[in-house]
Design a protein around this nucleic acid. Structure first.
Lengths: 232, 232
DNA sequence: TAACCAATTAGCTTACTGTCTAATTTAATA
DNA sequence: TATTAAATTAGACAGTAAGCTAATTGGTTA
């Protein structure tokens, strides 16, 4: 294919570590991946404990992580990986397709979720992309993760003009106040932070409540988070 | 590359429609993609209205959707695509990298989010994968989407036992109360809903605040959402 | 210039919050 | 059986929140 021959450049190798308890899968993966240009499997581990040690030392680009590990499981291991080597991307490679595991994996810091029946060619592409920061979720479970994103029924973000969007309605100052509100600050604290009187803070909060069409600050905070009006 | 030559099989063509207002981008894309094996750009549209009409008729596998369209914007259009052709996968192709747009896109039903500086080879792979159901998010914005997944500090799922979690500390009743609290209910409303006295509701809220180590119900709500203690 | 809006401040009222102490009942557990 | 934990209720208190009206200042726009 034309588009692939172009890619024969001197991209740095993606340094990969495999954490997987089944030896057969582990070594099989290693051999398969080392065939691929620009991918270099530098180590493998059969459990999270030894895997984490290697990762701490090597700071690899990508970790292929099994979920069902003995001892520390893959989820906890993923969290730890992001602690000890924040730039390392984690790819979950498992046979589980339960929603909670998919969501929990991505919540724990994984960048990709692959089922074990993945095509090796695809896997190698995923590894290269994930190394750059891409998020990739297997076709069999993608819908489980995607449905988690809030439907912007009300978020008129990016609205083509007709119905004005909530955030645009908020003035800059109000956005500031909303941000502090979501942090759980009281009106008094907000006033102190912005160096204004409590009256001012209250006035802003009041108009925020009206603009968001909610009754109190809790609802405002929840709505702000759900609709991405503030970065949590 | 080896992995590509293997794929010369008789996979059905992925039928693609491009919705993009800039003619240059639109026709450029079309030419580039039609070079790719197994991808067939069957139509293009310069706005959402005409795009949706074509999509309704053609029921394509994949739609490449620009966000900044005149009239109906890409977000709304994405929602409509999923209504009129649920099996059609939407790939957002835009130059915007704002968090709200990324999240709103995926919430509106898109399966992938690409920035316009994407490598054409990569795009063609994304198209093929997304057609199967994969979720793909550009490396420049993936972190914005990934951080939305609740950190499973509390998810008892797959917990290897040792670290007890916040949610386990909450009693069932408290979890009920927390759920209502996040909905913005006042103590009085919570009491009515659970058919208990206000005193009881307050008692529960009070112990929730203590267990979550927060000062007020706003912080409790925010923490509950962030940590996935409640389903929003 | 006039009209408008954002931001600011103030006072006032009603209602709600969060904490405390204290007590009762029920279920599970040692 | 004795103990513990959860759920329930109550009264009281200081603090906060939210709605209301009203006024001032500084830009922006018609």
């Amino acid at each position: 294919m034309v588009q692939q021959t172009v890619r024969t450049n001197q991209t740095k190798d993606v340094r990969v570590i495999i954490v997987e308890d089944y030896k057969l899968t582990r070594v099989g993966l290693r051999y398969a991946l080392n065939e691929i240009e620009n991918i270099n499997v530098i180590a493998e581990a059969q459990n999270a404990e030894s895997g984490l040690e290697i990762i701490r030392k090597e700071q690899p680009d990508v970790v292929l992580m099994d979920l069902g590990l003995p001892g520390i499981n893959g989820l906890e291991a993923t969290s730890k990986v992001k602690e000890i080597s924040p730039n390392t991307k984690v790819i979950i490679l498992t046979s589980h397709d339960r929603e909670e595991e998919v969501v929990a994996s991505l919540g724990s810091g994984a960048s990709a979720y692959c089922l074990k029946d993945i095509d090796p060619n695809t896997l190698s592409n995923v590894i290269k992309n994930v190394a750059k920061g891409t998020c990739w979720i297997d076709s069999n479970v993608a819908h489980l993760a995607l449905k988690l994103f809030p439907k912007p029924e009300n978020t008129e973000i990016l609205n083509s003009g007709h119905s004005m969007d909530v955030k645009a309605k908020l003035t800059e100052r109000e956005s500031e106040v909303l941000k502090l509100l979501v942090q759980g600050k009281s009106n008094t604290e907000i006033a102190q932070e912005l160096i204004v009187s409590v009256h001012t803070a209250k006035a802003h909060v009041c108009s925020i409540l009206q603009k968001l069409c909610v009754d109190d600050r809790v609802q405002a905070a929840v709505k702000a988070i759900k609709e991405g009006l503030v970065s949590v």
